[in-house]
Simulated scan of single mutants.
Amino acid sequence: MPYPKGHKIKVRNTIVESAAQAFRTHGIHDVSVPFIMKGAGLTHGGFYSHFDNKEQLVAEACRYAISDTIALLQKVADQEEQNPKINAVIDYYLSPYHRDKTEMGCIIPALSAEISHSSEEVRQVFTQELERMIAFISDLAGIEPSKGSALFSTMVGSLVLARTVNDPELSDSLLSSGKRYAKELVTI
């Protein structure tokens, strides 16, 4: 009996979601295709009927994860009644919750170091998606893209460092300082 219409696309999307979650949590190189497929509830034998290679999956997972993050941040902004709405996004992005929930967090701080060693295809997709994220942040803050780059870089850098250290007080301090200076960038 044949699969219902749209089955292959649904399975492919499930694999991409599993990969995005795994890459956010463990990085690219520490995640195998069998691990991703198991997370999707599938055997690894079917991987190549959906993707040419792991690099193609990394690129698609980056697209998916950044779209997911932008949608989440837009929801945070939409729920904010005060202006500027960017402050609610900064507060969420640099929160202990976002720091600790890497499996659903922004993929940019999770993968940036590894992406620099990836294929040109993956780097191109990551670049396009980073530009899309910066445009989202800039538009939401009502600032020019170069200032939006500085704002988002401050947010990403603060989150990376807060996730890296093993001292909880220092981690919280990095988030708090990052919030304060990110918000100052918006008002300058």
Rank of each mutant, 00 (worst) to 15 (best):
P2D: 11
P4K: 14
P4R: 15
H7L: 00
K8T: 02
V11G: 05
N13A: 07
I15E: 07
E17P: 03
S18E: 01
S18A: 15
S18N: 06
A22N: 12
A22K: 13
H26I: 09
H26F: 14
I28R: 01
D30H: 12
V31G: 05
I36A: 14
G41V: 02
L42V: 01
T43I: 08
H44E: 09
G46D: 05
F47A: 09
Y48R: 06
H50N: 00
Q56V: 06
I66M: 07
Q74N: 13
A77G: 11
Q79E: 12
Q82Y: 05
K85D: 01
I86V: 10
N87I: 01
D91I: 03
D91K: 11
D91V: 04
Y92Q: 11
Y92W: 15
L94G: 04
Y97V: 01
M104S: 10
A113G: 14
S119C: 12
E129R: 15
L130K: 12
R132V: 03
F136A: 11
S138M: 12
S138C: 08
L140V: 09
G142N: 02
E144S: 10
S146H: 06
L151K: 08
F152I: 06
V156K: 09
R163W: 03
E169A: 12
E169Y: 08
L170I: 14
S173G: 08
L174Q: 11
R180D: 10
Y181W: 14
L185W: 07
T187L: 11
I188A: 14
